[in-house]
Amino acid sequence: MRNISIKRIGLLLSKFFIDNRRTELIRIITGFAVVLFVSYCSLHSPVVVVSDTLAMFFGIALILIIGWSASIFTSLKNKDKAIQYLLLPATTLEKTITNILLVHVYVPVAVFVIFAGGILLGYVLPSPIADKYTADLCFNFLQDDAADKVGTFLTILFCQSTMLFASVYFKKRALLKAVAVYAVVICVEAIIVVSVFLGLLTHFNFIGEKVVSGCGDFNLQYATYELCRNILLVAGTVLFWVLSYFRLRETEV
C-alpha cells in the first residue's frame, strides 16, 4: 500500500473538522469578536497611536497563531482518544501531513480571516469620530518591506512547528510546557552568552581588542545574516516536522 494517499489525508481532515467544528467555530467567533472590538476602539479613537495599534494587532495574531497551533492536535491527550487515533486506517506520514496542513495552512488562514474581517468590519462600522487615516495605516502594514515579512513568516512557521511537535510529544498542556521549554532555552542561552562575553571582556582583553579591531574585515552583510537566519528557520521547521513524525510513529498506548 502506498505511504501517501490524498484520499486518506482528505478523510483525516474531514474527520478533524467534523469532530472539532464546535470548538473551532467558538475559537473563530471569539477571535473575531476580540479583533472587532479592538479595531473598532482603535480605529475610531481620536487619540490612537497607529504604531501601538499595529503592534497590538501583531501581538494578538502571534499569540493566537501559536496558541491555536499548540492546541490543534489533541488526539493523544487521553488514552482512549489515542487508541482511536493511532488505529485510524492511515499511515503515520499521512497523519503528520494532515497535522502540518492544519497547523501551517488552516490556522494562519483562519487567523487572517479573523483579522481581515475584524479590522474591516471595525472600520466600516459607523462612528462620528472615524479616522480614515489611521485605518488606512492599519491596512498598510501588509505592504511593508517584503524581506521583513519573509523573516516574520518563517519565524512564525518555526514557532508553529515547535508547537506541533510539543503537542505530539507532551500530549497534555502542550502550550504551557512548550513555553516553559522556550523560557528555559532562552535563559540558558542568555546566561551562556552573557558569561562568555563578560568573561572574554574581563579576562582576555586582547581577544576583545582583536574582535573589535577585526570588525571591519569580518563585517557580515545584513542580507547574508538574513539569508542564514532564514535557512536556519526553514531547517528548524522541517526538523520539528520530522521529529513529530517519528514521535507519532513510536507512540504506544
Partner: peptide, 8 residues
C-alpha cells in the same frame, strides 16, 4: 507498522 490496509 500500523499499515492502513491492515487497520481498515
Amino acid at each position: 507498522r500500523r499499515a492502513p490496509d491492515v487497520l481498515s
